Simulated scan of single mutants.
Amino acid sequence: MDNKIELLIVLRKVAFGSECIAALIGLFFLFSYKAKGLLKWFSIFLIYIFINDIIGYNTRHWFPNSNNLILYNISTSITFLFLFFIYHQYTKEKTSKRFIMYFTILYIITLFISGSYENYLNQLQSIPFLLGAFLLMTSIIFYFAELLKSEQIQESTKDLLFWISVGLLIYYVGKMPFRIVRDYYANHNDFSTLFILNSIFTIIMNGCFITGFLIHKKTVFR
């Protein structure tokens, strides 16, 4: 058990480090190229997520009686909405765009409905998160489907959004089961295994973001 806790502490530090590196590299490319569209704000978004996670992680150390869940609920909502808007902008097929817009509206409605019986001040989003993750993964699949049908499929690995999509898909495929059983394992003696896996998925996701920033083409910024 002690070994798992030690591993979890190390992985969390690595995860925070990967978030910081991804945000800083993204910020460098933001100022190096004349970015257009929502992707130009992706590095700013990463900086926000990093700062939010640092504050959320340390809140209980700074203020033992405080609750940091509201910070994560806000960042989760901002994350889903921002990413829905990105995929709505960068997918080209009208059907995909229409569905992604429906997804956005459905997530917002579910967020408000769930807020009537979930206290977002001291409870993490449950149904809104799971629905948002599922709809976001579906949006990513729409994007990949368009890539497969395009004539530039061989150049897709040089596309920043391709690597963002790979990272997000891996992360949420791993995150959804974690969130489903989190409430149970949070009070379980061996909860650390799930949090270790969550940190690993976070590191992989940010590794994909970093890869995308490093090998992308300038043409990805529209």
Rank of each mutant, 00 (worst) to 15 (best):
V14R: 07
G26K: 09
F195V: 05
L69Y: 03
T95I: 14
R182E: 15
R60L: 14
L135C: 04
Y33A: 01
Q154M: 15
F144Y: 06
N73T: 13
L39N: 09
K218N: 14
H188A: 15
L106D: 05
F45A: 01
I54N: 03
I78M: 12
I180M: 13
S75Y: 11
A22S: 14
F191V: 01
H216S: 15
L38F: 13
N119H: 01
L71K: 03
Y117G: 02
L161H: 09
I55K: 00
F221M: 14
K4Y: 13
S66V: 02
N3T: 14
L197P: 02
I25L: 13
N52C: 11
I204N: 11
L71A: 10
T193D: 13
S18R: 08
N68G: 07
F195N: 12
N52K: 07
F162N: 04
S43P: 07
V173F: 08
F42A: 03
L161G: 02
K34Q: 09
L27G: 09
Q125R: 01
L214Y: 08
I51L: 12
I47Y: 02
I47C: 12
I203K: 04
I49Y: 06
S114F: 08
L169T: 05
L130G: 01
T110Y: 07
L46K: 05
S18H: 10
S150F: 11
I180K: 00
Y57A: 14
R60G: 01
I180N: 06
R179V: 07
S32P: 00
N52S: 12
I44R: 07
K4Q: 15
M1G: 02
Y184I: 13
V181N: 12
S18I: 09
Q125T: 00
W41Y: 10
I105S: 13
Y117A: 05
D190L: 10
F85E: 08
V14T: 08
F213N: 02
E146I: 11
F103W: 04
R98A: 11
S114Q: 10
L148S: 09
V10P: 06
I9R: 11
F29K: 12
Y87F: 14
I203E: 06
L168G: 10
N122V: 09
P177C: 14
L124K: 09
Y57K: 01
E118V: 04
I74N: 05
W62I: 04
V10Y: 15
N119F: 08
F178I: 13
A15W: 02
I78T: 05
I141K: 08
W163E: 09
T138D: 05
F112N: 11
K158L: 14
L69F: 06
F103G: 00
Q89A: 08
D159T: 00
P177G: 11
L106R: 00
K218S: 14
K34M: 05
Y117D: 06
W163C: 06
L130M: 07
Q152M: 04
S77E: 06
F42R: 09
N68T: 00
K97E: 10
S116M: 11
F191N: 13
L27D: 00
L7P: 00
I51K: 02
Q152I: 01
H188E: 15
L136S: 05
F142M: 03
Y48K: 01
T59I: 10
D183V: 05
I215F: 14
N189K: 12
D183I: 10
T157Y: 15
I153C: 03
F142T: 03
A35I: 05
L106P: 00
I51F: 09
S139E: 10
I5V: 13
N68Q: 11
S165C: 12
